[in-house]
Amino acid sequence: MVGTTAPEVSAAAAAGPAPVKKSESRNLNFFYGQFQALKDISMPIYEKKVTALIGPSGCGKSTFMRCFNRMHDLYPGNRYEGQIMLYPDNTDLLNRDVDPIEVRMRISMVFQKPNPFPKSIYENVAYGLRVRGHTRRALVDDKVEEALRSAALWDEVKGRLGDLAFNLSGGQQQRLCIARALATDPEILLFDEPTSALDPIATASIEQLIADLKEKVTILIVTHNMQQAARVSDYTAYMYLGELIEFDVTDTIFIKPKNKQTEDYITGRFG
């Protein structure tokens, strides 16, 4: 392994089978032009677990997440240093030779505000399949249904797949975006503050969904809500000013964090 190793998880994690690394950030630095937004971040993402990124506004948690699907490549002046490895095939997602489109085909993302396309419910979910060139009607139909079921939306929309996505409620729109992301069987699903635009009931349903989804897919979630991180995640990383302060099992982070800064943030003395 290159550079410093990822922080090891405390003994509390030892219970149960050892988690498998799905991905790993190694000495990741990220620059918006001259400004360094991420400083030397190394941490693992475990397979079929939920990893939460927490920290005050501007700490770089969203920036870090958007490195995983190379979203920063869409805008000029952004630069990565270091590696994000994807296992088991040992692909470095940040390598110049790796096409960002390939990365995005393997890693899906759900955004902060629901962003359905102004098309039908069906077309929204089918879009990822269309991008991959799937045209066989039966196959697309099956995949759309499967994805909508996984996103716990099927029962609410099955009779009106041709309706415009904008006619759904905010919570339904967000679940539609989750279905859209799931339809292409991603290896990792990124959630960027998925409930910050939703009411408490819709939030609860999304959180339930995340808990169900981790059986199928590895999840990385950014949240500004510490209770949410505590409720949904298995691992938590606390970030501050572009640095990773502490990474551990969620219970450890919230009950007895090793770092004073983490403790101050968790207990509300700071942030």
């Binding site: 979203m71 869409l74 995005r104 085909m105 899906s108 962003n115 396309f117 102004p118 879009y127």
Partner: peptide, 11 residues
């Protein structure tokens, strides 16, 4: 967000 939504799916 709409543009990013499309690119995020590998378009």
């Amino acid at each position: 967000a709409i543009r990013e939504g499309s690119y995020a799916l590998g378009a």
